[in-house]
Design a protein around this nucleic acid. Structure first.
Length: 437
RNA sequence: UCCCGGGUAGCUCAGUGGUAGAGCGGGUGGCUGUUAACCACUUGGUCGGGGGUUCGAGUCCCUCCCCGGGAGCCA
């Protein structure tokens, strides 16, 4: 009785099966009925395709199954592929069999407008929408571009711990947990210190993993759990750090433009600014020069103060490409940064600001390599020395100049996709007041 | 933590102290090429919770809760 089904095909591959019978498996994206001709748009994760049901072209029983279908019902379709400019996706299936797998209950998310809170409460369902799929594909591309980039340059992936005994930066932003009989442990807010140890072993290393910050930051650029790529290399100067960060960012943008242009178009991303990023070198400004530029724009910042989001936005909008701002005052930066020999008030550090108002996506520096200088810095920052003895060891046993940077994955993806908020760039965002679903 | 703006049907929202509304969605019927289809009918309510003012409160006042936007801090 059973006739054999044609080969299962992904919607993205339909173009190579025109004129052939195929089987599609997916979910109902849209339904329309016009009497004896019925249309359904199916999605399968690779794209959208339209199915056409004409009474008489398929078993009456299958034709009637159409009336049971609801949005997001899962189903298996068989039919002949036809190129059809009128159809969403450009290809159409003349349906010869229709078998529902599961009739969906009323799906809460429609193609109409929804509020942010409503969608975030249903993030597990929201992921099915074309925009969210496009963003996740861009994220995937950025991750792969990053791994390829470091591998090609001889960097070794070193996974740093997520449970840590101490903090790297302020203790106010730490997630705390109990660690068996050992007392408190904290979720990692940076792999940097461990990466420095690994750089003394392997020369060039990087890590890529989740990072946790319990900051009560409620902005479009903050998550409490985000992914960070960190690189560290022995014998690297600030110049080397800046060049590497610039190359990485350019490489990521180029890869996304090369492989994910359809996603960017779906997201209605203006490609012009991204093409600019790939086209040439990034401008560089010292902190002092940045203050002058800001003053010209009517934003006067007292020397010594860090640049806020507003200032970053103004600066980044002055250039068509990402801008590297280097040599901030040490007072505004972390304890481990090497002082500038030309002006010891300054740190050999750099922030990379994305254009179009997206702000900081990379922060890096040359690290202190001298034991005495580092000890003085710890004292100046009121940091306890004992839990960092292992870190100080790196300065006791063959210390060398070294440096590195961290790049925030979600901020990069948000920028590349042209999004207003990073919460859409990670599958299940963790925000200050939200840990569901 | 602070400063703004919100909370009314499943969703997005309107609602001037005096009968609780629209569009979309859902349901029923119609339509042989639809494109967020269309047409007709229909179904939807603890107006965030509590208290107060008033003849009368979705509307005014107090309070609590929740959500959004921004600031500080950071990737």
């Amino acid at each position: 009785m059973n006739t054999e089904s044609p080969a299962v095909t992904a919607i993205a591959d339909l173009q190579t099966h025109v004129g052939q019978a195929v089987t599609l498996r997916g979910w109902v994206y849209h339904l329309r009925s016009s009497g004896k001709v019925r249309f359904l748009v199916v999605r399968d994760g690779t794209g959208l395709a339209q199915g056409v049901l004409v009474k008489g072209n398929l078993p009456e029983e299958d034709f009637q199954q159409f009336d049971r279908l609801t949005l997001e019902s899962s189903l298996i379709l068989e039919g002949k592929v036809k190129a059809e400019p009128r159809a969403p996706g450009g290809y159409e299936l003349e349906v010869s069999r229709l078998r529902p797998v599961n009739i969906s209950q009323e799906f809460p998310i429609s193609p109409k407008e929804h509020g942010v809170a409503f969608l975030l409460d249903r993030r597990h369902l929201w992921l099915r929408s074309p925009r969210q799929q496009a963003i996740l594909r861009v994220r995937d591309e950025v991750c792969r571009a990053c791994r390829d980039f470091f591998q090609e340059r001889g960097f070794v992936l070193v996974d740093t711990p997520i449970l840590t005994p101490t903090s790297c930066e302020g203790t106010t932003s730490l997630f705390e947990t109990n660690y068996l009989d050992q007392g408190k442990a904290y979720l990692s807010q940076s792999g940097q210190l461990y990466l420095e140890a690994a750089a003394m072993a392997l020369g060039r290393v990087y890590c890529f993993g989740p990072t946790f910050r319990a900051e009560k930051s409620k902005t479009r650029r903050h998550l409490t759990e985000f992914w960070m790529v960190e690189a560290e290399a022995a014998f690297f100067t600030l110049e080397d750090v800046m060049a590497l960060a610039e190359d990485l960012v350019r490489h990521m943008v180029a890869r996304v433009l090369l492989h994910q242009e359809p996603q960017l178009r779906l997201l209605e991303r203006d490609l012009g600014p991204l093409e600019q990023v790939v086209a040439g070198p990034f401008p560089r400004l010292s902190y002092g020069e940045a203050l002058e530029r800001l003053k010209e724009q009517g934003k006067e910042i007292p020397w010594g103060e860090d640049l806020g989001g507003d200032e970053e936005t103004v600066l980044s909008q002055m250039f068509q490409r990402p801008v590297l701002v280097h040599r901030y005052p040490r007072s505004a930066k972390a304890f481990y940064m090497e002082p500038d020999p030309a002006d010891p008030r300054l740190a050999l550090c750099v922030d990379l600001l994305a254009p179009e108002g997206y702000g900081e996506i990379v922060g890096g520096s040359q690290r202190m390599d001298d034991l005495e200088t580092l000890l003085k810095s710890l004292a100046a920052h009121n940091l306890p020395r004992e839990p960092l003895e292992w870190y100080l060891d790196l300065r006791r046993y063959g210390s060398v100049p070294h440096g590195g940077f961290g790049l925030g994955l979600e901020r990069v993806v948000g920028w590349l996709c042209g999004l207003h908020h990073v919460r859409e760039t990670i599958p299940f965002p963790r925000l200050i007041d939200r840990i569901y679903p």
